[in-house]
């Protein structure tokens, strides 16, 4: 009997709930970030525009950068170009999901693709990589993605409404919530030498390349980190 690949017969419903439960801490971390987005965006976008951005773009860091650029008078085409560069990391996520989603229907690919985020991806990939053979792992992914989405839209709305009554909400540093959330997400990866090298090289490169236009430094740093980790892995083997 192959005990390394146990068959899991978790129902879609239980996978959905487990995914939502798994992403809960990251949803909590996104709450201040979403509220501050709604509050800040009100300065440069209309009420409907702010809400529409969270509903249709649904990419926190690029939304933040967009309203920052908008406030400094940047033209729309340049903001869209920056959005491409900032969100290019999602391409890496999508490629990582290929082996796990390729057998699903086009509808599932569309839904999970639209709702792809750093947080949703990080939670889903851990589930996909677990060794049990379950036909319903994509329901876990959906549970995580859906919770993240609904929370983001609601928090934007809270920022748009209640946020106006909080004095200087922008200066509190609520956006730091995203930083601590991502720190918490990185820590479980730091368990072997190549991964630690990836983290260090990626972090240092991000600092060095920070001055590049349109936030290009993010992609440069990620690729440098991945390459360094791979090279270390090859050497230590």
């Amino acid at each position: 009997m192959d005990v390394s690949h146990p068959i899991s017969n978790a129902s879609p419903r239980s996978e959905l709930l487990a995914g939502a439960r798994a992403i809960f801490p990251l949803v909590v971390g996104a709450v201040p970030f979403g509220i501050i987005f709604g509050t800040l965006a009100a300065g440069s976008l209309s009420f409907a525009g702010t809400l529409a951005m969270s509903i249709f773009v649904f990419a926190g860091s690029s939304q933040f950068i967009a309203i920052g650029l908008l406030a400094s008078g940047t033209a729309a085409p340049l903001i869209i170009l920056t959005t491409i560069v900032v969100n290019l990391r999602h391409l890496l996520y999508a490629v990582s999901l290929v082996p796990h989603l390729q057998k699903l229907s086009q509808f599932w690919k569309l839904v999970l693709g639209f709702w792809l985020t750093d947080e949703g991806f990080a939670v889903a990939i851990v589930r996909y990589d677990q060794r049990d053979i379950s036909p319903n792992k994509h329901w876990y992914h959906l549970g995580a993605a859906l919770f993240m989405y609904v929370n983001w839209v609601i928090c934007t709305l809270i920022g748009l409404t209640i946020g106006r009554w909080i004095p200087n909400a922008a200066s509190w540093g609520l956006d730091f919530a995203m930083s601590v959330t991502f720190i918490g997400m990185v820590i479980p990866y730091a368990k072997n030498y190549p991964m630690v090298v990836t983290i260090i090289v990626s972090g240092i490169t991000a600092l060095l390349a920070h001055g590049l236009p349109h936030q290009l430094g993010l992609m440069v740093a990620a690729i440098a980190g991945i390459t360094a980790g791979m090279m270390t892995e090859r050497k230590t083997r």
Partner: peptide, 18 residues
């Protein structure tokens, strides 16, 4: 295997400058 390095590399690149 390369793709396994994507999450920590990307997340770190966002966090460290922030």
């Amino acid at each position: 295997k390369i793709l396994g390095y994507v999450p920590p590399a990307v997340l770190t690149a966002i966090v460290v400058p922030a």
